[in-house]
Design a protein around this nucleic acid. Sequence first.
DNA 1: CTGAAAGCGCTTACAG
DNA 2: CTGAAAGCGCTTACAG
Lengths: 326, 326
Amino acid sequence: MRDVARMAGVSIKTVSRVVNQQGEIAAATRQRVIDAINELGYRPNRLARAMITQRTHTVGLVIPDITNPFFPEVARGVQDVAQEHGYNVFICNTDGGAVATQKALYSLADQSADGVIVFPAALRDETLGEFAAAFRPVVTINHLFEHQNVGCIMVEIRRGAQMAVEYLCQAGHVAIGMITTEHPPKMKTRRVLGYTDILQAHGLPIRDEWIVTGPATLDGGYTLTHKLLDQFPEITAIFTYNDLMAVGAISACKEMARGVPQDCAIVGFDDIQLSTVTTPALTTVRVDKYAVGQQAMHCVLHMLEHPDQQFVPTSIPMQLVVRESA
Amino acid sequence: MRDVARMAGVSIKTVSRVVNQQGEIAAATRQRVIDAINELGYRPNRLARAMITQRTHTVGLVIPDITNPFFPEVARGVQDVAQEHGYNVFICNTDGGAVATQKALYSLADQSADGVIVFPAALRDETLGEFAAAFRPVVTINHLFEHQNVGCIMVEIRRGAQMAVEYLCQAGHVAIGMITTEHPPKMKTRRVLGYTDILQAHGLPIRDEWIVTGPATLDGGYTLTHKLLDQFPEITAIFTYNDLMAVGAISACKEMARGVPQDCAIVGFDDIQLSTVTTPALTTVRVDKYAVGQQAMHCVLHMLEHPDQQFVPTSIPMQLVVRESA
DNA sequence: CTGAAAGCGCTTACAG
DNA sequence: CTGAAAGCGCTTACAG
């Protein structure tokens, strides 16, 4: 910058002014500066600028695992709107661990990220609150958290689960099992809530033994389906936590010579690409993952512009996608 | 930091020394400083530090599309080793465009990233060279580029293609088609080279009409397979550019009532998760994507530590995974 | 329309 | 073992 100023025969301040396009500048002066900039290949140092403006044009995205097909799409959503606004985005994987999440959050704050988007997963509310007290904005996805410094993007999970199970009921199923992830004892997740909502609405009994839990993976779905159907062969339909588990369930059914959907209907959750290529193709509840990412980034931007304003939680609607497995 | 110094009754310099664990410090003094740090919740500002040390502990990863199942795994590879070494990583999507790639590169340099990992895709060598002249280190994946400032991680694509086609030949196929992406006329990609290598080795004719090109997607594979088999029904095996295309090819064959693998064998490339859940499951060439990412990040780290050293290209070996489609 | 000075929050020689 | 000064590359009031 000094070199540019010298070459153009002006002060550093003037260079700064043309770079930032602020204030009035004599056309001739500006041209001289621009020429010097081009000749020297000068590019402003964003770090130095950031130190003054307190804006790094950087946001962090904290997710369990980019390798899980759910997350790349939301990542793309945030990246696309970030890029539109001149932001770069850090991505951190936590594998769902509470301490890894916490570390990632503070590491992002140390890097002076302007904002942070996080799937809080196992993170305790207390920890999240501590962080939010020192950092703003943070936006959580799928986790309601009331705080001046946090915005929330909510996927209507309970509604989605209701749609899935309702569809199964409409098709005449009365013995519907559920395969889901482990969760704290006694706590019902939104998916389980949606499931019981509908059973109740139809006057169907809720049998806790029909709800089995394990890792939300292909293998998890496979193993749990075996377990569930071995024990309760009367079950004719299964609603799963996500598509990965649903695809595992399809494999298990094939192996057990249970036709899908005739002998056992299966409905997944998320609508990832995988679900279109299985045989039968998966009936599932679509989450607009890309929109989730976009909204989250918009939320960050909004909170950055309005430091004093409370952000009202945004809801992302769900949609049932009927294919072949149910 | 000033507050910490004041509270501990020492100079700023002393605080800096305990934070960076450098130099000898009286135990009592150190303790006082540490207490002050904890009490105040002081965290060093990495930006300010970066401005001096010229190290942001930040790297950029420039890929076509995080939504393509190939890339999350390599991203995870670089992120994991990055994190181990205290680095955060920016991810930029380019959709394979040359100008988007160039923009991403310079944006990363503007952010003062310490290094950059890039799939150069459509980027012209000249552009890459210009960038590398002003920035170091850059490491390219799958693109050999001789330059003091660039390291290369090479996947043995030609070798992988040879393995795939050799397997098909061994199985007795003599009419083997190929579905691949568009590429500059007259230029043979490494996959096509591997394909022709083996045909030649077996004394089989090379028929350019049997090599069809289009987008490397599910749909692309589907459409091209229709086209290829409609025109040349004598073809009994197809080697595809990637697994996405291979899965599309399977769909097309099903629709055309061609049994896979009996009537038409199919071999893919990459070994993404998708390929395990199709019916039939895909035979493919495995690329260790995670290792690619790890190596790339190691390369960055190495080049950062040895500014004067030329990095020798690293090769990632391939492996044929035989499942059901061939 | 343009310039000189102070300062963002640190680290790096250099003294003592 | 510890301190005072300069400076990383910019921007922000404040003058003129």
